[in-house]
């Protein structure tokens, strides 16, 4: 910098050209956008390295043959679609994700309302307690559930027997296992919905309810015409986010059933692991894991566009 200034004073074409260069560099460095870019650089490097590169590499992999030597286009996807076992995975993934997300949303919404009506310190205590399932590492808590679902030694079946009922093979039959993995996912994910909805509820101004009360609204009408429209964006974003995460769920199925019985509980992620890592067909595993990507990306695009439009209209 100091150099640039000294040269600038000197006379002669060479010196002035150098000073111009130094000056434009200085200008570039001084630009706010340059500073912003530099400050963001570590993050950009991280995202490119950990997100973009693996994504594009997975897309590339999914278009190779088993030996990863020849480019085969979309053949892997076409082949998968013809396989009954993969059709079952699509069905189970959709059943799992949609049922779990809807149940998490409904339970989260109800619990958030109950919490909202608890005043003061008690609310904080309950909120903390109810968040516990979401805070415990999922693999660990799923192991506990696996133990609870054990046909011979579990607390659940022991209680059933004690009450005089037969033992239930929780993970032994197709539908039992399907319901079990959904139940554990709901148990794990509902607190997240609860906390998001509680925050949304708290952000609805009390005066809107008072105005509605004076306008003649019943409790149900307040919920329908004030609470739900005011929470709409949070509800949509939470459900979208949860849908994406639940579609990608791995731990629960891997630990509880490992896809069984008879591959009836496989999700995209566990099936991709099964095909790609355990069976050694990495390109096909990659195409399994990418299968939902276009669907979810399109859904995300429309939901987020709607949310953005609404928040522009509504926020004050």
């Amino acid at each position: 910098m100091a150099n640039g200034r000294t040269i600038a004073i000197g006379i002669g074409t060479e010196a002035s050209a150098a000073s111009r260069r130094a000056g434009s560099l200085k200008k570039l460095a001084r630009r706010r956008s340059t500073t912003a870019l530099l400050l963001c650089a570590p993050l950009i490097v991280l995202i490119v390295g950990l997100k973009l590169y693996p994504t594009f590499y997975a897309i590339f992999l999914s278009m190779l043959d088993r030996k990863m030597e020849h480019f085969v286009g979309l053949d892997n996807f076409a082949f998968l679609l013809t396989r009954p076992s993969f059709q079952l995975v699509i069905f189970q993934s959709c059943l799992f994700a949609i049922t779990a997300v809807v149940m998490k949303a409904v339970i989260g919404f109800i619990v958030a309302h109950l919490m909202h009506n608890i005043r003061g310190r008690n609310q904080r205590i309950w909120r903390g307690l109810l968040l516990v399932p979401w805070v415990i590492p999922l693999a660990l808590s799923t192991l506990t559930w696996w133990w609870l679902f054990d046909p011979s030694y579990s607390a659940l079946n022991w209680t059933l027997n004690w009450l005089g009922f037969e033992s239930i093979p929780f993970l032994g039959t197709t539908w039992n296992a399907r319901i079990a993995v959904i139940a554990v996912n709901v148990w794990f994910g509902a607190p997240f919905f609860m906390i998001m909805y509680l925050a949304a509820l708290k952000s609805v101004p009390e005066q809107l309810y008072e105005a509605a009360a004076i306008d003649g609204a019943t409790a149900w009408q307040k919920l329908r015409f004030i609470t739900l429209p005011m929470m709409r964006n949070i509800i949509l974003i939470t459900m979208l986010y949860s849908l994406i995460v639940t579609f990608a769920d791995f731990d629960i199925v891997r630990i509880l059933t490992n896809g069984g019985p008879q591959d009836s509980t496989h999700l995209f992620a566990t099936y991709a692991f099964n095909v790609g890592i355990e069976s050694g067909n990495i390109p096909r595993g990659a195409s399994v894991s990418l299968f939902m990507f276009p669907v979810l990306a399109t859904l995300a695009f429309f939901v987020l566009r709607d949310v953005l439009k609404r928040s522009r209209e509504v926020s004050t």
Binding site: Q207, A211, A212, I214, G216, F225
Partner: peptide, 20 residues
């Protein structure tokens, strides 16, 4: 009697218009 059955109307300090 709850507010809805009192047949009154109220204008609030921050208007309390329904933003949606």
């Amino acid at each position: 009697v709850p507010p809805k059955d009192r047949d009154i109307a109220m204008v609030f300090q921050n208007y309390a218009l329904y933003p949606h």
